[in-house]
């Protein structure tokens, strides 16, 4: 799959995605026929007011939910008809998630949280240790590997979440309001970090956000409203 005007590969492809919650008069059309390709190396933001469908679209792309109509393809693999177990495997191997509210497992240390996805992927002990420590060092948390989330600040926890999203070497990182709970200084640091990872390592990011500081770094800005994409611009 090729993007118009350049030779980049589409990591994610959405064709005619519709999502309807509820039935009859109570039906809510969260997504209305979305067509979207996310290209390899994109640092894209998905913006729009609350209820515009950003999170729903991210859930579709992340194989966390399935569309009412249409087809999502991730790294060339259609999600239609995949079992729950196969969807879990796909998330594990191809998608990294960064959520709004840190979302670390509280009983695991920073290193164990990062290692968790590697353990699920059955990576050897030595390799997962070195990869987890490297990922934590990458996000500036060297020396904090054994701390539990309760002993880390909000910004540090979100850094751990970023390290966890990256350590499995996913094809795309989906971030839903990743800076919503952070102060401006920490937000700036994290956006810089994600941008650097995108620039240096070519990791594809798709971020749902309201935050202008995040959008300022964006190379591609997708605007949504009422379940539809109203603009898709590159800078």
């Amino acid at each position: 799959m090729q993007h118009k005007g350049n030779e980049m590969t589409a990591i994610v492809s959405c064709k005619g995605i519709t999502k309807v919650f509820g039935k009859g008069e109570l039906a809510v059309h969260a997504l209305r026929g979305i067509d979207l390709d996310i290209m390899e190396g994109d640092f894209a933001t998905l913006a729009g007011p609350s209820g515009s469908g950003k999170t729903t679209l991210l859930n579709m792309i992340g194989a966390l939910d399935h569309p009412t109509e249409g087809e999502v393809t991730v790294d060339g693999q259609s999600l239609s008809g995949l079992s729950k177990s196969a969807l879990s495997d796909l998330r594990l191997q191809k998608v990294g998630f960064i959520f709004q509210a840190y979302n670390l497992v509280p009983v695991l240390s920073a290193r164990e949280n990062v290692e968790f996805v590697l353990r699920l992927a059955k990576v050897s002990v030595a390799e997962r240790r070195s990869r987890a420590d490297a990922a934590l060092a990458e996000v500036g948390l060297q020396g904090m590997e054994t701390r539990r989330p309760s002993a880390l600040s909000g910004g540090q926890q979100q850094r751990v979440a970023i390290a966890r999203a990256l350590v499995g070497r996913p094809r795309i990182v989906l971030a839903d309001e990743p800076t919503a709970n952070l102060d401006s200084k920490t937000t700036g640091e994290l956006v810089d970090l994600m941008y650097r990872l995108n620039q240096d390592s070519g990791i594809t990011f798709l971020m749902g956000t309201h935050d202008p500081r995040v959008m300022a770094h964006s190379k591609r800005h997708i605007e949504m409203e009422d379940g539809q994409i109203i603009s898709d611009t590159r800078s």
Partner: peptide, 12 residues
């Protein structure tokens, strides 16, 4: 948390 673990790839 179970939702998070499932999102990370943990199977049912």
């Amino acid at each position: 948390e179970f939702g998070l673990l499932r999102a990370l790839g943990l199977k049912p």
